[in-house]
Design a protein around this nucleic acid. Structure first.
Length: 428
RNA sequence: GUGGGCGUAGCUCAGUGGUAGAGCCCCGGGUUGUGAUCCCGGCUGUCGUGGGUUCGAUCCCCAUCGUCCACCCCA
């Protein structure tokens, strides 16, 4: 019988990895609540048209990476490749805009049909944060401060912040014409990729990793020097606020986001620790998106954090708390003793909610059972064999302290004794 | 979509044109009722898949799939 293959680029998160995931999630959840963000949950599937309109027809994501299909009812649907479009759609659908402000966050899987490599998967997870109805730049600074605080809380240091402003769509259009004219004048020296981008997305040429392109790129006009006055002021104010907050950053005039809806502020946290996929968390303003999707014109800013990438950084840094082991492991030998142990385990779960009580199931001799007790991480083994059963007692054996002696307690008193022992042990 | 590396035990890997080994893990015993150390023993392989060359292929060749990395793009 042949095995069923997993889907390429879609990973299982195994129990040994889950601790780091849960830790990141719990820290993020707590931090977001502290900044006044509310969780929202939106569907995995949306109308294909939503993403085409939000992300842009000529982006790589829409052109070649979406998991799109036609369902039994003939609807054109797509597995979300990012979260912002769905969240904005949800705000519009539920009539929650109309001048109101919302601080929202979301987490879940996203889907892009890319070729997997380090830090890049077909199903991946994001924590997505959106501040809707705020002009900024104050909210821009606060949002970035939130991300900086998150890195601090999870002990990640190998990240750095790049910021830029894309200006208004009008300013960007004017700049784009300047840029195209510049690159046209150097057309002969452009590489193949850059010639292709000249038609589709000339700003992307600035991002080229080809060393031969560096000289041409270096001489290109800079977007930051061609901003409209309002965007300039917005950006200058943001930079001043970041300095006030002691958040180090680099103004990177070549930082260009890959999704069309961004305007004005864009930012990206990058790392040198994960190989080629260095963006860990990035986002920006999308003042025009909501009206573009049929809502009242509403300014907004958001970012997405790549959970797999941040988890990888956590694993590298080794900052995640160790996975919790058992508190108590019940060793039982013989059918009658097992039945008593089963009842005792339930009594412990009544008496000690939150404690992890593991009962040896599946038999085994004492040696095997103690081996399992050891591996469970339990601090205390509770032993009940034929002898103890006959005498109405259990043995308590401390497993992490070689000097501590095994003690015998009456079976009815066991939950109280064990609770007391665990409390004393935790206090040491 | 393009390019390169790699597919041998559950894991990490060694190996040879005559169909395979180590360490770890797991299980049992030494200790007939006590773990993590030690000693002894044991378990598992369509050598990724298909085809070709050969008397014979895990090894050489081709294809294919998977995987990793890079480009591209992005979180």
């Amino acid at each position: 019988m042949s095995q069923i293959q997993p889907i390429r680029g879609m990973n299982d998160v195994l129990p040994t990895q889950v601790a780091a995931w849960q830790w990141l999630e719990s820290v993020a959840r707590e931090l977001l609540a502290a900044y006044g963000y509310e969780e929202i949950r939106v569907p995995v599937v949306e109308q294909t048209q939503l993403f085409r309109r939000a992300i842009g027809e000529f982006t790589d994501v829409v052109e070649k990476e979406m998991y799109s299909f036609v369902d039994q009812g003939g609807e054109h649907l797509t597995l979300r490749p990012e979260a912002t479009a769905g969240i904005v759609r949800a705000m519009i659908s539920n009539g929650l805009l109309r001048g109101a402000r919302h601080r929202l966050w979301f987490t879940g899987p996203m889907f892009r049909h890319e070729k997997p490599q380090k830090g890049r998967f077909r199903q991946f997870h994001q924590v997505d944060v959106e501040a809707i109805g705020f002009e900024g730049p104050d909210v821009d600074a606060e949002l970035i401060a939130l991300t900086a605080r998150l890195w601090k809380r999870i002990g990640i240091t190998r990240v750095s912040l790049n910021v830029n402003s894309l200006g208004t769509p009008e300013a960007r259009r004017a700049y784009r014409e300047l840029l195209v004219a510049y690159f046209r004048s150097h057309h002969a020296r452009l590489d193949e990729d850059s010639r292709r981008r000249l038609e589709g997305n000339p700003l992307r040429i600035l991002d080229s990793k080809n060393p031969e392109m560096q000289a041409i790129v270096a001489g290109a006009p800079l977007l930051t020097e061609h901003l409209d006055p309002e965007s300039r002021a917005h950006f200058d104010a943001l930079c001043a606020m970041l300095r006030d907050l002691d958040i180090p950053f680099t103004v990177n005039p070549r930082l260009v986001r890959g999704l069309d809806y961004y305007s004005r502020t864009v930012f990206e946290w990058i790392t040198d620790a994960l190989g080629s996929q260095d963006a860990v968390c990035s986002g920006g303003r999308y003042d025009g998106l909501i009206s573009q999707l049929g809502g009242d014109p509403t300014p907004a800013i958001g970012f997405a954090m790549g959970v797999e990438r941040v988890v990888a950084l956590i694993e590298q840094a080794g900052t995640a708390p160790a996975a919790a082991g058992a508190d108590v492991y019940l060793v039982a030998m013989g059918d009658a003793a097992l039945r008593a142990a089963l009842r005792l385990a339930e009594a412990l779960r009544d008496a000690l909610p939150g404690r992890r009580v593991e009962l040896n199931v599946g038999g085994g001799n004492f040696k095997a059972q103690f081996r399992r007790a050891d591996r469970s991480g339990a601090r205390l083994a509770v032993v009940i064999g034929e002898d103890e059963l006959a005498r109405g007692v259990v043995q308590l054996k401390p497993l992490r302290d070689a000097a501590a002696a095994q003690v015998e307690v009456p079976l009815p008193a066991a939950p109280g004794e064990i609770g007391g022992w665990l409390a004393r042990d935790a206090g040491r």
